[in-house]
Design a protein around this nucleic acid. Structure first.
Length: 719
DNA sequence: TACATCTTTATTTTT
DNA sequence: TAAAGATGTA
């Protein structure tokens, strides 16, 4: 029977799937069948009677991954996956906290703040404490709070030696109090509360440890401190933890992910043997060899080398363009040619380090009439009109949610201005009640009073509707009673917004969930925890444009990695961060391993950045790939690239001009230069003349420097 | 309160 | 460059 499940698995995959009841770490390389192993392991455990579906807990980072896991599990076994604990860290924590709201000191209908909501909550705290927003920048305060929470720290555990950090800590304290008063939790709080709940309540902890003898973790390299703490509480000494991850694909350290958790896990759970999945089923050999060679430049890896049975395939195509415009034109031409060969656009991806790079590419694609789709940007539940509608819904569930109150008290406009709100806030503060309560107790007079009364009436109507009608009807009532729909219908460019609101009603109607908590609360959680797909609607065949981060986990027949320049990729900001360069390299590794058949690496010598032309050196990542695996598509690039090793016999004619006497200023922008001490670089700016002349140079290793030509021993690199 | 004009700033972002 | 945020004006 079980041979069925194992069919087609390689030896390592089989070993992982059939591991005895113990904890294990699976190092799963890119394209090595990670998800398959994870889901087959679950199916295998169930099929062999080791555990029922209800005894498995599987945790992922994205809703998409969780859905995928469940879908594949049901394809493997005829079981009902409903009610299984398979979900994101945040989703599972939400579930835990809903089930034990009282023990976690939360109201049963607590609301979840997304990033935007949290930021406005932080702003209110700063204002309430009368702190200077210049000194305590809301975003930074938010970051401060989140990073401490993600390390598992409450304010009391924070050491603050100077006035500024003490103030930040005070803000954290006040923020916590405000959230508690309003019955809301942010993303990190979901985790932290759960950790504290499990820590402080032995009964609950034992219950879950008993219930889940098997815990599986996806993308383990991306876990942060807090998530690991959560795991350790849930998975006791007798729990078998199956952790799957790839240290080489850790690209979220900047968000608190700690690869070190992998080593810690080995220690904490006494892992003696790490299973490596190194056979790659995605890419051809050259691509893998290139990626392997690149990532070998990182230190402290757990060690892994991808290989494939599918021959070497095509060489990696490298193109060096003169400008970002040229780079885009090159991409367009290649895409056209590939399209001509019958490769669908949706099987080609343009990857870049930062979103700003998409503009030039989009422009070229648009002019060429090539259909494309950009990933990223606002998601459905993050849209303003949707958030407004949800704010009304939240008030129906909990009128004391001041954040929601403030968002829509005057939207659509009811003539309630800043002045009136100040008065109301003052009343709420002195009575120590929510804005809603304050408004009910001490009505304002005048126009604002009328508007406020209308608003209160609206909330009351929604509250009774919430009791009486099902979710989808409630949603319609919200749109009508709030006046949102009317407001956007009148607006000139409101058509899209109206459409989104209608889609929201449809989403509410389509929403059905398994557990027995209230539909309203569940839907609101759903809206916060699953902001909607970043992916645009499927259907038409379109070229895929996205950042490398967004491409993680995806694969394409053809991949272009654009903008391979020092300062851009690797990004200059990363160079000053600890482990920054290595994370950039892992990012490049992820980018390369997305390609199945053909991989292009492109770079531009000049690029418009922040409204200025910038000259960047070729990314070191290109140089870290063995020459034998590459095919250089631009003659100019070939020569430039190999100058270090063998002076080119035939330099392009244009370059010769600068040897002539007419090229008086010895240096010009964009020129490659070498310095006795700093090595090679590119001229960014020239200033002054004669003995005052100085140039700004971006050195590959030494960074950006100003040099006085009278002293600097600077020579053009080409000569 | 709404709109216009200015100033500032510029990675990546699973939940 | 161009988008968002801040400040000023009707």
């Amino acid at each position: 029977m079980s041979s069925n499940l194992l069919e087609g698995l390689n030896a390592e995959q089989k070993a992982a799937v059939t591991l005895p009841r113990q904890s294990a770490l699976i190092l799963a390389g890119a394209g090595s069948g990670k998800t398959r192993v994870l889901t087959t392991r679950m199916a295998w455990l169930i099929q062999n009677g080791q555990v029922g579906p209800q005894g498995l807990l599987a945790v992922t980072f994205t809703n998409k991954a969780a859905r995928e896991m469940l879908a594949r599990l049901s394809a493997l076994l005829p079981i009902n996956t409903r009610g299984m604990w398979v979900g994101t860290f945040h989703g599972l924590c939400n579930r835990l906290l809903r089930a034990h709201a009282r023990e976690a000191q939360l109201p049963s209908l607590f609301q979840i703040l997304d990033v935007q909501d949290q930021l406005s909550a932080v702003k209110r705290v700063i204002r309430a404490l009368n702190y200077d927003e210049e000194r305590y920048v809301p975003r930074q305060v938010q970051q401060f709070i989140n990073s401490h929470k993600e390390e598992g720290r409450r304010p009391a555990a924070i050491e603050a030696f100077d006035a500024h950090s003490r103030a930040l800590r005070d803000l954290y304290v006040a923020y916590e109090a405000q959230c508690q008063k309003e019955g809301v939790v942010d993303f990190a709080e979901l985790l932290l509360r759960s950790v504290e709940l499990l820590q402080g309540n032995e009964l609950i902890r034992d219950h879950y440890r008993e219930r889940f003898p098997f815990v599986l973790v996806d993308e383990f390299q991306d876990t942060n401190r807090l998530q690991y703490l959560w795991l350790r509480l849930l998975a006791g000494p007798r729990t078998s933890v199956f952790a799957v991850g790839d240290d080489d694909q850790s690209i979220y350290a900047f968000r608190g992910a700690e690869v070190a958790n992998m080593r810690e896990f080995e220690r904490d759970y006494g892992i003696t043997q790490v299973i490596r999945l190194e056979q790659n089923y995605r890419s051809f050999g050259n691509i893998l060899d290139a990626a392997n060679a690149l990532i070998r430049h990182n230190s402290g890896r757990m060690g892994k080398n991808l290989w494939t049975e599918a021959g070497p395939g095509e060489p990696i195509r490298v193109y060096e363009a003169g400008s970002d415009g040229d780079e885009s034109r090159f991409v367009v031409e290649e895409v056209r040619a590939l399209q001509g060969e019958g490769i669908p656009l949706s099987q080609m991806a343009l990857l870049y380090r930062s979103n700003a790079q998409s503009r030039v590419l989009e422009h070229a694609l648009f002019s060429a009439g090539i259909g494309y789709r950009v990933y990223g940007g606002l998601r459905f539940f993050e849209r303003m009109e949707v958030k407004h509608a949800l704010a009304y819904l939240r008030l129906a569930a909990n009128p004391d949610d001041d954040g929601a109150f403030l968002r829509v008290v005057n939207f659509p406009p009811r003539g309630i201005g800043a002045r009136s709100m100040e008065v109301l806030q003052g009343q709420a503060d002195s009575a120590r009640v929510s804005l809603y309560q304050a408004a009910r107790l001490a009505p304002l007079s005048g126009k604002a009073g009328t508007g406020l009364n209308a608003f209160l009436l609206c909330i009351e109507t929604l509250r009774s509707a919430a009791e009486a009608v099902p979710l989808n009807e409630l949603m319609s009532v919200v749109l009508d009673e709030s006046g949102l729909l009317r407001h956007y219908r009148q607006e000139r460019d409101g058509a899209d917004r109206v459409e989104n609101l209608e889609e929201l009603v449809a989403a509410a109607a389509a929403f059905d969930h398994e557990s027995d908590d209230s539909d309203l609360a569940a839907f609101l959680s759903h809206a916060s925890l699953e902001a909607g797909d970043h992916e645009a609607a499927p259907g038409s065949d379109a070229l895929q444009l996205m950042t490398v981060h967004a491409a993680k986990g995806l694969e394409f027949q053809v991949v272009f990695v654009c903008g391979l320049e020092e300062g851009l990729f690797p990004h200059e900001n990363a160079l000053s961060e600890a482990d920054g360069l290595e994370e950039e390299r892992r990012l490049m590794y992820v980018a390369m391993t997305r390609a199945r058949q053909r991989l292009y690496l492109t770079r531009a010598e000049s690029r418009m950045l922040h409204g200025q032309v910038r000259y960047g050196l070729r990314s070191r990542f290109i140089d870290e790939i063995p020459e034998t695996l590459c095919r250089w598509l631009s003659a100019q690039a070939f020569q430039a690239s190999r100058l270090d090793f063998q002076p080119s016999p035939s330099r392009p004619a244009a370059a010769l001009d600068f040897t002539s006497a007419s090229a008086r200023p010895p240096f010009f922008m964009g020129q490659s230069v070498t310095h006795a001490k700093f090595g090679s670089g590119v001229v960014l700016k020239c200033e002054g003349n004669g003995s005052d002349a100085r140039v700004q140079v971006n050195f590959r290793d030494a960074g950006v420097k100003w040099l006085a030509l009278a002293f600097a021993r600077l020579t053009p690199a080409d000569f």
